[in-house]
Nucleic acid binder design. Structure first.
Lengths: 101, 101
DNA sequence: GTAACACATCGAAACATTTGAATATATAAA
DNA sequence: TTTATATATTCAAATGTTTCGATGTGTTAC
């Protein structure tokens, strides 16, 4: 599909690649995603345990991941948990595969 | 393999993901890679045609892509051409797939 | 209600990235 | 060997990102 509409690929797709790449270009945020590799969901609180950052910083990183679409936030009372948004990650991977012509 | 050595995965791999993601997190650099989607190699000179940037800026972006391992520079006399480094892109894609647990 | 907890937002400092003018280097052409 | 061309490097300005203290908002517990 990308093959036949390279102009579309070069517009919508680039924005996605850029935004998601930016979300992935930080060690703390990758660490968050790594945690979700073995767990189905991750509580905001738990992130404090493995990231040596203050609460506002962690909130900031989680926001970037959510804004990029990589994480789905789920509110549970006054807590917040996150799930990996696999379709978005898959789309990103597909876009990267599209770079291979 | 990542499954059984998550600590390794969380060290070497993260650095790669971070560096390559950073290289991919800019519209100009994605545009460069997009050009290579339909062409086997791309001359440095040609980048001036589709990027509205000065020569030093383009040189800077190409350097980041080469440093990340995504582009292979090939010197031809006083010209320079670039090829996509598919194995590196594939490794990056594999790391991302590894995030899916 | 009010106190405690979880998370978000604001504002500012520190740091990193992007950009281009000026200049340097390296190669080819004359 | 001088001259022109292609790319790299340096430096500084502009911009963007990361971080944290302080504070705000929303939710549960008492």
């Amino acid at each position: 599909m990308f093959r036949y509409f390279p102009y579309l690929c070069g517009v919508k797709s680039d924005v996605q690649i850029e935004k998601i790449s930016k979300a992935l270009s930080d060690a703390s945020r990758i660490a968050i995603l790594q945690q979700l590799r073995t767990r189905d969901c991750l509580y905001c609180q738990e992130v404090y345990d493995f990231l040596d950052l203050t609460q506002p910083s962690i909130s900031h990183h989680l926001k970037l991941l959510v804004d990029a679409g990589l994480l789905i936030p789920i509110k549970e009372g006054r807590n917040l948990k996150y799930k990996l948004n696999e379709p978005v990650l898959n789309d990103y991977i597909a876009s990267l595969n599209g770079l291979k012509g």
